[in-house]
Design a protein around this nucleic acid. Structure first.
Lengths: 191, 191
DNA sequence: ATTATCTATAGATCTATAGATAATGC
DNA sequence: ATTATCTATAGATCTATAGATAATGC
């Protein structure tokens, strides 16, 4: 058995859990987390609701597993966030409406009281803004051509990405998400 | 009885309905629409759940009434959307986290399948983008100083407003929403 | 022997309907 | 007479626990 296989070898149990997490992603896209029933997820993987709870003891444990799939949310690693890569990310997102819908539904719910994803998103945005600022600094230095500091441009960059996703999910025909995002990058980069 | 009073006179029933809509706004902010139970709304206005259903026959009728409070969502009338007024709107929003939380929770849920607010938001964004473009055209003509056409700048403006709201709701200490929005307007207006 | 899955079920909800009673408006 | 509100309740869910049975791994 080659090393590669050994490294990625998954037990039956791990396979099952991965299947379940995938199904959960789908059901959350369709109904949100609060609206996602364990029975609906179970049915999608051919289990009873009680069979599903053998793999994840509570509904919240399922959500934690979903949020833990960081590569789904942050398709690009740490410091590599140059402008061209951001455009590539937005173009990639425009090809996977399901994931973006899951993300957007969870983000929306997360602002409600006591939502189990709230801390996750709060931390995530702190991190993402910091990474963005770092990337912008690497590309432009202390001032962008537009005159903004990297720290002030970062939340705008993130806001445009998220805000465009909602407009696009609601009306994909009317909103060219990648083109709009490129327009925004032009604004940031022009002086 | 002066005319003014006659015009705004409300029957007991209208008063009650308005109270109920207010309470619904609050409960949606706390739990989203799917998580908002009729019982929770009823309790807040001192009614039983069945008593509430006398005023609104179904849960969805309640949501329709909430979405109908257009002045809550669009605090500024039609064509008056000049830049200063937009800043004023964002500053106003920063003072009413409850309403923004209701709006953001509903927007997030609305992208899920068959959500009763979906059509509302789809239409609303079409309208809002058109109004924004119109306002930008009135202020700048066919090209903004940044070189964008009003039609291309409009979705970015809306995206920034919505995206900043999520970041701000999740972490108000870290995000100065009005300042960030002003930064964005500077980007748009500078050449 | 351990892991996976199932049946049975408790105990909370939830929305909505039916019909009785209390309050209000002419 | 009409409107507002209540009690009672149907009928669906929902999450989670308990415990039995089947499948798998050493």
């Amino acid at each position: 058995m080659p090393y590669g296989d050994a490294m990625t070898a998954r037990t039956r149990s791990e396979e099952r859990r991965a299947e379940i997490v995938r199904a959960t992603l789908e059901v959350i896209a369709e109904r949100g987390y609060r609206g996602a029933s364990l029975a609906a997820v179970a049915e999608r993987v051919g289990l009873t609701q009680q069979g599903l709870l053998h793999h994840f003891p509570t509904k919240e444990a399922l959500l934690v597993a979903v949020l833990g799939e960081r590569d789904q949310w942050d398709a690009l690693p740490g410091t590599e966030w140059r402008a061209e890569l951001l455009v590539a990310l937005v173009e990639y997102n425009a090809m996977r409406p399901g994931i973006i819908q899951t993300f957007s539904a969870l983000l929306g719910e997360s602002v409600t009281e006591g939502h189990p994803a709230r801390a996750f998103f709060t931390r995530r945005y702190t991190t993402v803004r910091a990474h963005m600022a770092e990337a912008l600094r690497a590309e432009y230095g202390e001032r962008l051509p537009s005159g903004l500091t990297p720290e002030r441009a970062a939340p705008l960059l993130v806001a445009v990405m998220d805000g465009l996703q909602y407009q696009w999910l609601l009306d994909p025909e009317s909103v060219d998400m990648p083109a709009a995002f490129r327009d925004f990058l032009t604004l940031l980069g022009e002086d």
